[in-house]
Design a protein around this nucleic acid. Sequence first.
DNA 1: TGCAGTGTTGCTTC
DNA 2: CGAAGCAACACTGC
Length: 320
Amino acid sequence: MPELPEVTTTTKKLNEILPSLKIVSVWTNYNSSYFYGKENIKDPKYFAKFKKEAIGSKIISSYRIGKNVLIDIQKPKIKDKKTILIHMKMTGHVLYGKYKRAEIEEMVSGERKKVNGWVPVDKGPLQDKFNQYIRLVFELSNGNFLVLSDARRFAKVCLISDRVVKEFKDLKGLGPDPTEKEFNLKRFKEILNKKPVGKIKSILMEQELISGIGNIYSDEALWMTEIHPEEKPSRLSSTEIKELLKNIKSVLKKGIDFGGDSTSDYRQPDGTPGNFQKHHKVYRRKNEECLKPKCSGTISRIVVGGRSAHFCDTHQKLKR
DNA sequence: TGCAGTGTTGCTTC
DNA sequence: CGAAGCAACACTGC
């Protein structure tokens, strides 16, 4: 589900809601997949520690690093803060709403298959779908709940107690953030120089090189720049690299401005879908006509680095 | 019925 | 040894 704009949308909303609320209690029904200790090893016993740290803590703020949701928390009278890291992977949803406490408690303990939660915007079957896959629940001091719904159980939750969050294993290896001012042409060229003969789409999505870009936004940025997804960086002109950088930044901004992409099932914390999917030029438009003005091409789909890549067969040609 | 899917990891093969 | 390929994770929707 989430790439940089979706995660940004989520953390921005969380940051409007959560700061100064306290975590009253925490439940999970999927210990073994979610809690990682300092060594970053999956182990159900870490949930006990996670719970102990979380309960009684006040939420300070929420922000994004790469595709990770970070939530800083702090216990009263304790100087050091801790940080909750949530990676939503494919089907994770961080949602905030009203639930009946008894129902959600029963559900998470496995006594109930689903709850009638409050994810207000979706009136259709998706609402049930989200509530059916709630894996982790934070009860908050205002009586509302912050929950992680995750059908495929790929999501990851960690508690970071290190003072320097960026030194945490999952975050340390991430490449620079393309929305930062410091991510300039010089920096971008240095990155591309590391992989002169790689496939440009795969490079854009490699989190160790650049953090935050995934399948949707890489397709869109390459379409805008008229570059084939399998093109080698060594064949790109200086002008193309400059344009590509500009388009990456603008398409990510557009994704954020539209509240994320709900092609699949991304939802903002209050259940609202994003709108970027209404503005795709290529992603998931296989066999449809190219939307570039005056281009009469058709959108093709191929597999690049194990992922689907969409491009126009006419204005995104491989250089020979 | 079958296959593709917004992400990442870890193992295998070249 | 590094890079690339591929299955796995678990489930939905077309």
